[in-house]
Simulated scan of single mutants.
Amino acid sequence: MSTGEPDYDRLLRSNLERVFNERNAARRTAAVAELSGADPVMFESANVVRGQSAIVDAAGQLLAQFGADFAFVPIGHAVGHHGLARLSWQAGPRTGPVAVTGTDVAEIVDSRIARLWVLLNPTA
């Protein structure tokens, strides 16, 4: 039985892998175009990023800042309903240690990310 809900896990995992782990700008651009609405907004703790190209650039800058071995890894499965979903993740060098953990919370409209809140967990 179909609930009419999008596949929240696939969508948020794809966003993490194909946007925030993708170092190739052309592939990152294609992923944002596929996964996001026409005018997405990403809310970070100190910044608001508006539009597909700005999100592509912000992800690229983040990857450049942390180096080639840095990656985001999902923790568990994304859950959601009625257009709201969340996915927890951790990030750091692929061989460890974990540098940061957080959660992406997304508003989903027409099976695409309309708004994304990036929530960082406090460090110990």
Score class of each variant (00 low, 15 high):
residue 47 N to M: 12
residue 50 R to H: 14
residue 26 A to S: 13
residue 34 E to S: 08
residue 82 H to R: 15
residue 20 F to Q: 00
residue 65 Q to Y: 10
residue 111 S to K: 11
residue 27 R to M: 01
residue 87 L to N: 04
residue 30 A to V: 00
residue 123 T to R: 10
residue 39 D to H: 14
residue 93 P to E: 01
residue 52 Q to W: 04
residue 50 R to E: 14
residue 110 D to A: 15
residue 102 G to E: 03
residue 8 Y to P: 05
residue 6 P to V: 08
residue 72 F to L: 07
residue 34 E to T: 05
residue 28 R to L: 00
residue 16 L to V: 07
residue 104 D to R: 00
residue 58 A to W: 12
residue 39 D to W: 12
residue 24 N to H: 09
residue 104 D to Q: 02
residue 94 R to Q: 14
residue 91 A to F: 02
residue 49 V to H: 11
residue 57 D to N: 15
residue 28 R to K: 01
residue 1 M to R: 00
residue 8 Y to H: 07
residue 49 V to E: 13
residue 116 L to V: 09
residue 85 A to G: 11
residue 36 S to M: 14
residue 60 G to T: 03
residue 13 R to W: 08
residue 104 D to V: 08
residue 74 P to S: 12
residue 13 R to I: 12
residue 77 H to V: 12
residue 106 A to V: 04
residue 95 T to G: 13
residue 22 E to C: 02
residue 34 E to R: 04
residue 30 A to D: 03
residue 96 G to C: 10
residue 23 R to E: 02
residue 27 R to T: 04
residue 53 S to Q: 13
residue 8 Y to I: 06
residue 53 S to T: 12
residue 113 I to F: 14
residue 69 D to M: 03
residue 15 N to S: 12
residue 7 D to G: 05
residue 43 F to S: 15
residue 9 D to W: 09
residue 96 G to N: 12
residue 56 V to G: 02
residue 83 G to A: 05
residue 84 L to V: 15
residue 96 G to M: 11
residue 59 A to E: 01
residue 56 V to T: 08
residue 82 H to P: 03
residue 91 A to N: 02
residue 16 L to C: 08
residue 80 G to L: 07
residue 18 R to M: 05
residue 98 V to T: 07
residue 21 N to L: 05
residue 18 R to S: 05
residue 105 V to I: 15
residue 70 F to L: 02
residue 51 G to I: 15
residue 21 N to C: 01
residue 90 Q to D: 10
residue 33 A to G: 09
